[in-house]
């Protein structure tokens, strides 16, 4: 199962980006293999509807779960519509590697 984590940078030492629509990178994690891939969020500089565009990317990637610090209403309703689970982490400063460890149960 694939999961997306919003990240401030392009490797696992980056921290969680608390913004969904305007995050810097998406970390795509394969929960079975533990492999990660980072893609840039093309919506981050968009003047409006960044959340919708980011949700588009997430849906196109075919993931089932998104982990971030916040979701806007439009992004939320789109992700809901396609059955994608949203997770809001309480601690925003976490390092991606730690987030991965906790969700993969390591």
């Amino acid at each position: 199962m694939k999961t997306i984590i919003t990240a401030n940078g392009s490797d696992v030492n980056a921290t969680l980006d608390p913004r969904f629509g305007r995050c810097e990178f998406f970390c795509i994690l394969d929960e079975e293999t533990g492999e990660t891939e980072f893609i840039e969020n093309k919506a981050k500089l968009q003047s409006s509807a960044a959340g919708t565009t980011a949700a588009e990317t997430v849906i196109e990637q075919g993931v089932k779960k998104v982990i971030s610090g916040d979701f806007g209403p439009k992004a939320k309703s789109l992700l809901d519509r396609f059955g994608i689970q949203m997770v809001i982490l309480k601690d925003e400063g976490q390092i991606i590697a730690n987030v991965i460890n906790s969700i993969t149960g390591k």
């Binding site: 409006s48 588009e56 196109e60």
Partner: peptide
């Protein structure tokens, strides 16, 4: 940015 189209799910 008013239009959303997601081809894989035909939205």
């Amino acid at each position: 940015n008013a239009i959303t189209v997601i081809p894989p799910v035909q939205y």
